[in-house]
Design a protein around this nucleic acid. Structure first.
Length: 474
RNA sequence: GUCCCCAUCGUCUAGCCUGGCCCAGGACACCGCCUUUUCACGGCGGCGACGGGGGUUCGAAUCCCCCUGGGGACGCCA
């Protein structure tokens, strides 16, 4: 490593648009370890340029999840630092100024196309089997040809010829034809920058030396390289981590796998286990030893040794590691953690109104409230209702089912019907039966609190996979 | 569809760069046995992979090419 000839500065750049994601923890871990190993600085930068989706609560959760894992940063919105502000929404002036610079240099242009027009163009391109992208309609528009008040975006003027090459530390040279690179929007109509602009400008201004990010960014790296060149800047070193996968090998998603760090924290996965597990996804400590700490990883880690095959996030192995770490827990920690995390005051208070009238002695709490701790819901009665059956009789059951599926699993009646159709044969359905064929009551137990309250206390992600597994095994 | 990336047991991986020590090593899961008054932990063992085809070479999991397969990107989301 060339640690002495260069300041190592890494960054993690989450977008605060949802629950803290395991993918973030994964990428952060590798950034963190490489950083520490080289006496570098780790920057946390909040990429909140999507005004619609960014939420302060999400930002807070991301930070607390990373802290939970012990992945601390040296500079960030909460701790400050010499390169701030560290929230992109607070850096507007900087982006405006840089966009103007590109405009002046003729390396970007204003585009007045409506999204409707863009949609049409894309549809046509798709129909012809072409790469979809902007047709550069406004690229050569004379500067004064549009009314000053017309809404516009600023697009990058990508070279029409040639190729753009860059080096990925793990993969070597990657070369992409400029025809494949879109005239990317840099500044949106609302004046906010897109990821591509903000990311490049900030990485440069914050003197980031190595960009370690997920593989999904490979195909937009040429845009970034082109931008660095347009500004006359030196690009950082790029390294793309393999993507975590669902069991079906698709990119890990909450639809198919629990992905929220909050979920794992609450479930009772220990940070050490999670970190150890994540480290194993693409890297190995030694030929025989699989259990190791972050500190040990730091000693032996070699960036270039990251394995490129995209690993499947395997809950079983996580749990095995966790069991191992749990065995190391001392008696005091056992008592304290259980009190704080599982039987916390706040959780018990939530349960109070639901359990109070259902218990007949203190001991019965365990029996009556078990599913509030395991998430193990019971499913009572899955019935096929002939279409002749009065609508009202099962509409209630249907309602709760759809509520669960829509709210918890983001399903709708169409996907539900598809699932049901898969089981059509084993259910011996007649075609006329599957119009409204199902009644499913999902609750904790027979005498349990109402579904809505149950869901609220348990949390959606906890329930989501129970239902999925249930339907799958049916 | 176009472009890009990837390819060792069901899963995570070691080996690949610097061909021979690999008829491929470890771990999870699974199965069996031992230990244990139960269960778990622990110990021992079993099952199980170099996607296919061409090269190069005395020799290929390792190097090259093609095919196939998987994935990602193609947004005024990141």
């Amino acid at each position: 490593m060339t640690a002495l000839t260069q300041n190592i500065r890494l960054r993690i750049a989450p977008s605060p648009t949802g629950d803290p994601h395991v993918g973030l923890a994964y990428v952060t871990l590798f950034n963190y370890v490489f950083c520490k190993q080289n006496n570098g600085k780790l920057v946390l930068r909040i990429e909140d340029t999507d005004r619609e989706r960014s939420k302060p609560s999400s930002e807070a959760n991301i930070m607390s999840s990373l802290k939970w894992l012990g992945l601390n940063w040296d500079e960030g919105p909460d701790v400050g630092g010499p390169y701030g502000p560290y929230r992109q929404s607070e850096r507007q002036a900087i982006y405006q100024q840089h966009v103007q610079q590109l405009l002046d240099a003729g390396k970007a242009y204003r585009c007045f196309c409506s999204s409707a027009r863009l949609d049409t163009v894309r549809t046509e391109q798709r129909a012809k089997g072409l790469t979809t992208g902007y047709d550069r309609h406004c690229r050569e528009l004379p500067a004064a040809s549009a009314p000053a008040s017309a809404p516009f975006v600023v697009r990058m003027k990508v070279p029409l010829e040639g190729r753009t090459d860059f080096v990925d530390t793990l993969r070597g040279v990657i070369s992409i034809d400029n025809h494949q690179v879109d005239d990317q929007v840099l500044l949106k109509a609302d004046g906010f920058p897109t990821y591509h602009l903000a990311n490049v400008v900030d990485d440069h201004l914050m003197e980031i030396s190595h960009v370690i990010r997920a593989e999904e960014w490979i195909s937009s790296t040429p845009k970034h390289v082109l931008l660095y060149a347009a500004f006359g800047w030196k690009a950082p070193v790029f390294l793309h981590m393999p993507l975590l996968r669902n069991p079906d090998k698709s990119k890990i998603s909450k639809r198919k796998n629990p992905v929220s760090l909050t979920y794992y924290q609450r479930k009772g996965i220990l940070p050490a286990a999670m970190l150890n597990f994540l480290a194993l996804m693409g890297w190995s400590y030694s030929e025989t030893q699989e259990i190791f700490t972050v500190a040990e990883m730091q000693e032996k880690f070699i960036l270039e040794k990251i394995h490129l095959g995209s690993p499947i996030f395997d809950l079983q192995k996580l749990l095995w590691l966790n069991q191992h770490y749990l065995q190391l827990v001392g008696e005091d920690e056992f008592v304290t953690t259980l009190r704080q995390q599982v039987f916390s005051d706040s959780y018990l208070r939530k349960l109070y109104p639901l359990l109070r009238t259902r218990m007949d002695c203190w001991e019965s709490f365990v029996e009556k409230a078990d599913f509030f701790f395991t998430g193990a819901l019971q499913y009572q009665g899955l019935a096929i209702c002939p279409t002749s059956m009065p609508q009202a009789d099962f509409s209630k059951g249907m309602e709760s089912l759809l509520l669960v599926l829509d709210e918890v699993y983001e399903w709708n009646s169409a996907t539900l019907e598809a699932v049901l159709n898969q089981h059509r044969e084993s259910l011996q359905w007649k075609p006329k039966d599957y119009f409204m064929p199902l009644r499913l009551i999902v609750t904790g137990r027979k005498d349990s609190p109402p579904l809505t309250e149950t869901l609220e206390v348990l949390g959606r992600e906890m329930v989501r996979f129970r239902i999925r597994d249930y339907l799958k095994n049916f």
